[in-house]
């Protein structure tokens, strides 16, 4: 039901908006939502942190970019290749990595992200190095080019809706319950007969899948990629989206991605003070709503409702 409402809202938004700038902004929000959604599955539900998530974003983007720009593949052929590669790498990385936990897992994933970043920059024959890779074709369905702002918007947000449906199903299934069990206590989950290692690897692969999908969309919608977009700061930004939005909340990913993408746009007016304000906003949100925006705002809403409700009951009594 919620997803239908969401889909309708997107459909209407797509019809109502006319400015290419707003389409572009919403497109980036959509791409970031996919990234946050994937990481939220890993962090919020399975309780495993990743400080190198931008690596999978980059792997998705560069695979499709290299295949289409250098080898003239169709983007639709490059898509499964990009997704497969990201998931395969995720599998190989997860095998040793998920032995680690806590800050050490953070460190491990951070290292993986850095190595991927260095490789992208240094393999300049294919990736174009630091200057970036140009000439990535836009998406097409038959004769229809999907390069207009509105088409990009629908492609991205269509994907987001699909991602939401899949993740929501997963969360409310047996797998989702098992994941939450791991999050609360890995040992207890293990004792209950959950194959924790296998499950953690699967979630890691799922989050890599979503990140690679986001990378694919980014590459074809912007037609240009450079390593900067996939660096350590991006990884941190994705983590921030998840935490600000609310961990273990699918809609929190949407909210977090929206806020973190829009914030710099709103803060333009502060010019040189932008960084100060941005840092302050992050801190204030986390200090007063440590559960993230979704949970935090809900709490405030419930409390105000209770407060409004209390006098009426006492009056009756």
């Amino acid at each position: 039901m919620r997803n239908i409402l969401f889909a309708v809202a997107i459909l209407l938004a797509g019809l109502g908006i006319s400015s290419p700038y707003h389409f572009q902004l919403l497109t980036f929000i959509g791409i970031h939502t996919l990234l946050a959604l994937g990481l939220n599955m890993l962090m919020g539900y399975a309780g495993q942190i990743s400080l190198g998530h931008a690596a999978f974003y980059g792997i998705g983007a560069y695979t499709t970019a290299i295949l289409t720009a250098h080898f003239n593949w169709s983007p639709w052929l490059a898509l499964p290749a990009a997704l497969f590669l990201a998931v395969l790498i995720a599998f190989l990385v997860a095998l040793p990595m998920l032995k680690l936990s806590g800050y050490y897992l953070g460190m491990g994933t951070l290292g993986f992200g850095m190595i991927t970043y260095v490789l992208i920059r240094e393999w300049s024959g294919f990736t174009g190095g630091d200057s970036g890779l140009v000439g990535i074709p836009p998406l097409e369905i038959g004769p229809v080019s999907l390069s207009s702002g509105r088409a990009c918007f629908y492609v991205v947000w269509g994907t987001v809706v699909l991602g939401f449906i899949v993740c929501e199903r997963l969360v409310n299934s047996r797998v989702g319950r098992a994941l939450r069990a791991i999050h609360d206590s890995e040992q207890a989950a293990c004792a209950m007969g959950i194959n924790t290692a296998q499950l953690k690897i699967s979630v890691f692969m799922l989050s890599a899948f979503l990140a690679a999908l986001a990378g694919f969309l980014y590459a074809h919608l912007v037609s240009f990629i450079s390593p900067n977009t996939f660096d350590f700061l991006t990884s941190i930004r994705i983590v921030t989206m998840v935490v600000i939005g609310g961990m273990a909340s699918i809609w929190g990913s949407l909210l977090g991605a929206t806020l973190i993408t829009l914030l710099p746009e709103w803060l333009h007016i502060f010019s040189d003070y932008e960084m100060v304000v941005y840092g302050l906003v992050l801190m204030v949100i986390m200090i007063f709503l440590p559960q993230g925006l979704t949970r935090g705002l809900l709490d405030i809403y419930e409390r105000s409702k209770r407060r409004a409700g209390v006098p009426s009951t006492t009056a009756k009594g």
Partner: peptide
């Protein structure tokens, strides 16, 4: 579930208004 969805819709609308 219902309350949440209402909230999310309101938020989405608010964001939309701000944008447009």
């Amino acid at each position: 579930v219902k309350g949440r969805s209402v909230l999310v819709c309101v938020l989405a609308l608010a964001v939309g208004m701000l944008l447009s």
